[in-house]
Design a protein around this nucleic acid. Structure first.
Lengths: 104, 104
DNA sequence: GATACCGTTCACCATGTGGTTAACGATCCG
DNA sequence: CGGATCGTTAACCACATGGTGAACGGTATC
């Protein structure tokens, strides 16, 4: 299960990187500054984001330009939507049950 | 970061359990059958789901009734929605970036 | 009471994860 | 050329994760 967007999002630093890239492409330095960890640690998180397909990278001179891959993230977003649709229906079932209780 | 729904969802077996519970409460056996791992492994995954607040449990005789906690899962679902709203605008951002490149 | 069943805990193991410092390669700039 | 900058790789470490078989505690069933 190497290509798993949920795995990519399971660490707060990686979610932070995704948040910044959701606003637009950025270099490694721009996208990862201020997390309070060393550069190798950042490099590792970027590797995970690349392996899972969430982020792509293009070398530009001595910097790298990072971009989000919405299609891959959509796999996770769509899964969440499907589950939410189901558990939302559970609320309705409970509501109906409670109304039936009241009317008796 | 112990109470992190993303951590709960980072393993396919735990997502499978969530999928089943999204259709309604179930016992451990009902919710976790057929994953092809031993009972201790299942027990551990349930522990993670409980620790992260995604699942609650009520003992009923010798079985346990598991229920989903939508509020906790909504934290993850809402985050995904916010990001998706941002990366939905991303196509325009990329267009602008490419136009700036061309005009230079 | 004996036995089967549901699910957990215990002890253990292999691997993965996340972090560090040090060194490196490549690129830009004086 | 020489030095600063961007980001990676290498080597290492501590801890978390995910799995197993064995044993256990309650609860139902006969």
């Amino acid at each position: 299960m190497v290509n798993d967007p949920f795995r990519a999002l399971s660490h707060p630093i990686r979610r932070g990187i995704v948040e910044r890239l959701a606003e637009g492409p950025a270099t490694v330095g721009e996208a990862t500054g201020g997390f309070g960890v060393s550069k190798p640690a950042i490099s590792h998180h970027l590797k995970v984001l690349e392996e899972t397909g969430v982020v792509t990278r293009v070398a530009e001179g001595r910097t790298h330009r990072l971009s989000l891959e919405p299609d891959v993230l959509s796999v996770a977003a769509d899964w969440m939507d499907r589950q939410r649709a189901l558990w939302g229906r559970l609320f309705d079932v409970v509501d109906e049950y409670l109304k039936e209780e009241e009317s008796q």
